[in-house]
Nucleic acid binder design. Structure first.
Lengths: 326, 326
DNA sequence: CTGAAAGCGCTAACAT
DNA sequence: ATGTTAGCGCTTTCAG
């Protein structure tokens, strides 16, 4: 077995509780004793056992981070930021992938709940009802989903979507298509509402097409459906990239024949030819903020008031949008 | 507090140890008692506390996964696969990002070690000496790095690199450049060795240029250095993509003027125009295998023999390579 | 087959 | 300022 608090106590000639205090409440320990204990602990290579500590304190100092698909380029920056922020706060994070499966999501929450102080639900696929039920087991913070009474971090795609429609209209487009995402996606619904309202304001036609798989395949498959529109706003960059590919296969040029806008500002979009016009999602900021809100909620216990953080998005105009064909 | 084993025991009129057995050694419990206890546990919503269990069993059923950079597109598929495989085996996984910092890596290993049964080190930046020292604290499996006496999963880029050189030679290229990766990268060194040997076999010229940053920027920056070669094998897809961009800026066409080969078969490469010819890295398979080897090592304890798994890579010919210019 | 009791590593009153 | 004691939730001998 590894070296325990008891070994340190024995070696320094003090009681275990004194050793415990040197680590968790140093100010309660005589400076001299403290330095000695610290030195001996160091020498022995002692590291407090966080799991054992959790048993008595009720705080595991672990967080759970549940995402639909780790390999979706939208998530890695968020995971990276959340994980870095958590470590800064002396927290470790379990990362789990649900494969877009609500049942898996629930299962994960339940098995993880005892091992973490809170969980970050990113773009959950679970029903709001289920989420509200599960919240009794463990504190949540939800990213990109509106759940009544829960602390939430939202990225305001609506804002970006309005800007995108405005941009397309200014380029002369009058028939615009929207490729929605999976059913149950808050982001998709937000985009739909905002795009519809903006289309109304500008008095242009908006065809809402979906649901589509949030992948390149989904975009390729949608290439047939967008005929008749000169510009397409896509659920995310992957769909946009797939769509461009599908369009190209059909002999259509982007942006000459069709303008395409994505969402996420992901790496593949930035590297694409043509470079993708897209709505940036502040994923890293969202990850950091979600962790801080979660930790605040954990600290506050039941008493905490749910917060709603709304992060701004913006349109980045690159090469996949251009003047509407004559 | 949540419902504990004690609550279940009380409610079912048996001793806690019987409840414990129904979960961890069902065959030792009378079938009738078992079903009753199970039913009551279910009704109460009881979930065993894994942390508490870990305290007595010494098995946390957690794994650590340490990578240099979560946002590097090479890693997400590996993380996803490792995490999925772990869950299949009833393990949860902590994911941590070192930001390419060896000190951070060490710190993470140390704080994580008490909370996990083993850790997966992916493309570690830590020195071999340090790794060998740390292994006393927790079982390791290393991916894409050769460490004496440690179980290792390697992706055989050498094989792919030889195939790439062969492919280029068959297209008529006689002057080929190799853009290496960061110093200390095992993958980069493997590529160098294999490419050099293949170039020798085919009697063509190979210019080894590096080190280069493993990013798009690194590729852009290298565009000046490859003049004189008609084909370039790059450390990874990002470098290749950057190189293509840099070459394009200089008025050179890919593959007409220069052929470019990447490594990773990453999403951005697949979506690029022209689609990138690349060496596939079996990252998902590596993730799964690494988890299984780690779990095997955990089970075997000290007695286990280190294994060396070598996964095959292969060349995927797409659009960024073509006949050498006349 | 089941109960009793000890203990995993640590913290948190409570004493001293 | 430090020691004592009692658990946290669970598993594991050892009896019965």
């Amino acid at each position: 077995m590894a070296v325990t608090i008891r070994d340190v106590a024995k070696a320094s000639g003090v009681h275990v509780s004194t050793v415990s205090r040197t680590f968790s409440a140093p100010h309660l320990v005589n400076a001299e004793t403290r330095t000695r204990v610290l030195a001996i602990a160091e020498g022995l290579g002692y590291r407090p056992n966080r799991a054992a500590r959790a048993l008595t304190t009720g705080r595991t100092h672990n967080l759970g981070l549940i995402v639909a698909d780790i390999a979706n380029p939208f998530f890695p920056p968020l995971i990276k930021a959340a994980q870095a922020q958590a470590r800064e706060r002396d927290y470790h994070v379990f990362v789990a992938d649900t494969d877009e499966d609500p049942l898996m999501e629930q299962e994960l929450i339940e098995t993880l709940s005892k091992q973490v102080d809170g969980v970050l639900l990113c773009s959950p696929r679970l029903s709001n009802r289920m989420i509200e039920k599960l919240r009794a087991e463990v504190p949540f913070v939800v990213v990109n989903r509106r759940v009544k009474g829960l602390t939430t971090v939202l990225m305001d795609v609506g804002q970006g979507a309005r800007a995108a429609i405005g941009h397309l209209v200014s380029l002369g487009h009058r028939r615009i298509a929207l490729l929605t995402g999976p059913d149950g996606s808050w982001t998709s619904e937000e985009m739909r509402t905002a795009a519809a309202s903006a289309a109304g304001d500008f008095d242009v036609e908006l065809s809402v097409l979906g649901p589509n798989e949030p992948t390149e395949q989904g975009g390729i498959a949608a290439a047939d459906k967008v005929a008749g529109s000169t510009a397409v706003l896509c659920y995310n960059d992957l769909v946009a990239l797939g769509l461009i590919e599908g369009l190209t296969d059909r002999g259509l040029k982007v942006p000459d024949d069709v303008s395409v806008v994505g969402v996420d500002d992901s790496l593949p979009g930035r590297l694409n030819k043509p470079k993708l016009t897209t709505i940036t999602m502040p994923t890293a900021a969202a990850g950091r903020m979600a962790v801080d809100l979660l930790l605040a909620a954990v600290g506050a216990g039941e008493s905490g008031t749910p917060t709603l953080a709304r992060l701004e998005t913006s349109l980045v105009i690159r090469e996949s949008t251009g003047a509407a064909p004559a």
